[in-house]
Simulated scan of single mutants.
Amino acid sequence: MNSNSKADPISLSFHDSCLRMSDVQLLHGPHWLNDQILSFYYEYLSHVKYKTNNDLHFIAPEVTQCMKYMDDQELELLLGQSQATNKPFIFFALNDNESTEAGGTHWSLLVFSRPEKTFYHFDSYGNNNTSNSVELMNKIKELLGQRQAKFRPMRCLQQANGYDCGIHVICMTDHIADYLNRYEMIDGLPPLHIDAVKAKRTELLKLILSLGGKG
């Protein structure tokens, strides 16, 4: 990406996220979604859609990425600052990236349910990200007071191409958050419908424009 801000102006600044025009362009075509788009959406869920539901906690992908490489003290501080240690439900947008830099090739979703003492993993491309998600769970479960928590890989809608994993993570986040909002548990979650995935890029573009962003 061009770091020259004149060549790539800001489309939208929203809470802790910043979308440049090149980020928004990813929604126009069959492109892999980057950290910025997922971060923006998690900010929107936190500050707008689920602002009044304190049970749901959305951790931005760049924070999740850093968590993989933090020591216990740093992690404890981070989780404490974000008040995640007591949250009933925590969403992690997870990347297969092996470094602290932005990047990677695949997104999946890890959701911690405190009432069910379980980390649920949703992967739209087989079980590609399982080792990454188990690693993150093992790193944080004690800090969340859940040493005995189980890991449960979930069957979920599979992507039909090589670039829609980020869209699937966003749609699954919506789908699960809506279900939790009503039932306060993940067990029994119905499958995600393909129509939600097909419509999501257009919905995200409309959302960005409605918040004052430029498309």
Rank of each mutant, 00 (worst) to 15 (best):
E135P: 02
F112M: 08
D164Q: 04
G213I: 03
H193W: 02
T64L: 01
E142I: 07
Y120H: 12
S22D: 09
G212Y: 13
H175Y: 02
G213E: 02
D195E: 13
P9K: 01
I167F: 05
K198Q: 11
K68A: 10
L143P: 00
I167H: 02
N54W: 09
L180H: 07
S46V: 06
F92C: 01
I186M: 05
R152P: 03
M137Y: 05
K150E: 09
G215C: 13
I176P: 01
T130L: 14
Q146S: 15
Y42I: 07
L26A: 12
H175I: 10
F58Y: 07
P30L: 14
G215Y: 10
V24T: 04
W32V: 01
Y41A: 06
G29W: 08
K214H: 12
L27W: 08
G188S: 06
S124Y: 07
L205G: 04
V169Q: 05
C66D: 13
I167E: 03
P191L: 10
D55Q: 11
D178W: 09
M70P: 03
N181R: 12
T64S: 08
A149K: 07
G188L: 04
M185Q: 15
S13N: 15
S82H: 06
N54A: 11
M137F: 00
V24I: 03
L209M: 14
T130E: 15
H121L: 09
P61G: 05
Y44G: 05
R182D: 10
A149D: 14
Y69L: 13
G80K: 03
L45F: 09
C156T: 11
A102H: 14
F40M: 05
M21E: 14
N128H: 15
K87P: 01
D72F: 11
L56V: 04
F14A: 00
A160H: 12
A160K: 15
T202Q: 15
M137S: 00
E76R: 05
S17D: 04
K117G: 03
S17P: 10
C156E: 08
M70H: 14
D35A: 11
L189Q: 05
Q146N: 12
F40W: 07
S3R: 09
H168R: 02
F122Q: 04
Y41T: 05
A60K: 14
I170Q: 01
G126E: 14
M154G: 04
D96I: 03
N138A: 08
A102G: 06
Q159W: 03
L19M: 01
P88L: 07
H193I: 07
E101N: 15
V111P: 00
N181V: 08
H57Q: 03
A160M: 04
N53P: 01
E62V: 09
A7G: 10
G103V: 04
S99V: 12
Y163Q: 11
Y50I: 10
R201Y: 00
K68I: 12
I10Y: 13
D96N: 15
L45A: 02
T118F: 00
T105L: 13
S22K: 11
V134T: 15
E142K: 09
W32D: 01
D123S: 00
S210H: 06
A196M: 13
L27I: 04
Y42A: 12
H28Y: 07
Y50T: 01
D55M: 08
F112H: 12
V63A: 11
L109Q: 13
R155G: 09
R182M: 10
R182Q: 14
E101M: 14
Q146E: 15
N132K: 07
